[in-house]
Nucleic acid binder design. Structure first.
Lengths: 221, 221
DNA sequence: GTTCATATTGACAAAATAGTCGAGTTGACT
DNA sequence: AGTCAACTCGACTATTTTGTCAATATGAAC
């Protein structure tokens, strides 16, 4: 008289499923740390994840899908790390500096992460869209409170993003390993219109960066 | 009684060969403007070039080889455009600004070029090595003549490169099409340690940028 | 119009990659 | 110990891509 609760059944399924899905995402993440996103194949991913080919297609339609999932996970977990500190900062310059600072700290702590983010940023602009938009809004506010320097907020956005991504790339490739975080943020602040003194004042008022978890997989809710 | 000069023969061969090789390079260049470098196949290239598959392998060992050739051609032709103006500039800040200025002008004039350069920069770091080294030397000189701001020349290099590549990417993707060149250079100069006034002074002393040829293939010596 | 060194061609075999599906495994529940 | 819904497996076919090579085309010189 087997009477099994089908709802419970589905639950069990979902758990197992989530585990395997996470394995696949982690595998893709590892591969992106080593090689160009476009050069990764489905076979590479399943081999790295230690699952069968068919399993991949149960979870994702294509490589783009898993790539997007990797990007989303990265954005989401970084965001989670960032938002608590951000909300308490009223001044746009502080928010911008804080965000960049966290970015650099994380990259210094985990060059592998830096590599992956740098590579994905070039390929999956969708993923970082939200972060980009937030930064842009901060920059608009920031610009309004500044004597006009002829640099549009759009250009400032590209400048900040450009500097950050290049630093990520450099750290990911082993260059710049003794990077002075404050120097980098200072340069960035001057680029977007602060003078040396103002930049320094922002830096000293920066709250301690959020603590970072160590390198690898850990945030699977 | 056929007596043919074998030296002349070889000459003819070399000419034809060079033409086809240039076709292949131009085809790869076109493709790189449209899609990720790693996603281009040999078949794509030969189809775009209008030659047979076998011909490709007569000229190049692999896709990497033709990619390197595209990068080299880009670097070489941009360098040719740049060097004449550069040598007359004694001040490092001027040389740096002049280089960046030419870069941006070219990108504004030819977004396709901007796309290709941005893509190749991420993939073929070998190609731009020389340009990178020159910029680094200028930055070292530049830093020496400046009160120490705690920003190493290495970091300055990454900052300048990061800003320039991001602007290229943005222009290549159609963002930022109304870019104010001087604003961008000004921001870059402030990032590497000049104050607003000094940056402006550099900008007004900048010689006219080298004239640019229009978009497409023309420099086949 | 013949010659011939060189370049070009495209059909082909081999390798890599994508995507499918029937068979098999799992594990909480009874 | 048996049940079963959901997951996983991996061999298989289809497609794409690579790299080769014997045959053919080219064209200036004679």
């Amino acid at each position: 008289m087997a009477k099994v609760n089908p709802i419970r059944r589905a639950e069990i399924g979902r758990e197992k499923r989530a585990r395997t899905r996470a394995q696949l995402i982690a595998a893709a993440n590892s591969l992106f740390a080593r090689q160009a996103v476009e050069s990764v194949t489905v076979d590479d991913v399943v081999k790295e994840a230690g699952v069968a080919k068919g399993t991949f297609y149960v979870h994702f339609d294509s490589l783009e899908a898993v790539t997007a999932a990797v990007a989303e996970e990265l954005v989401h977990s970084f965001d989670e790390l960032l938002q608590p500190g951000r909300v308490s900062l009223a001044e746009p310059a502080l928010r911008i500096a804080f965000g960049c600072c966290s970015f650099i700290d994380k990259a210094l702590n985990d060059p592998r992460w830096a590599s992956v983010v740098a590579r994905l940023a070039a390929v999956a602009p969708k993923g970082g869209e939200m972060a980009r938009r937030r930064l842009f809004e901060d920059l608009q506010q920031f610009s309004k409170a500044l004597p006009d320097d002829g640099v549009s907020a759009e250009l400032k956005l590209e400048i900040v993003v450009g500097i950050m991504l290049q630093i990520l790339r450099a750290l990911g490739e082993g260059r710049l390993s003794s990077l002075d975080r404050d120097a980098a943020i200072g340069a960035m602040l001057r680029a977007i219109g602060l003078n040396a003194q103002e930049a320094k004042s922002v830096l000293v008022r920066l709250p301690a960066a959020p603590m970072l978890e160590s390198s690898s997989r850990s945030s699977t809710k």
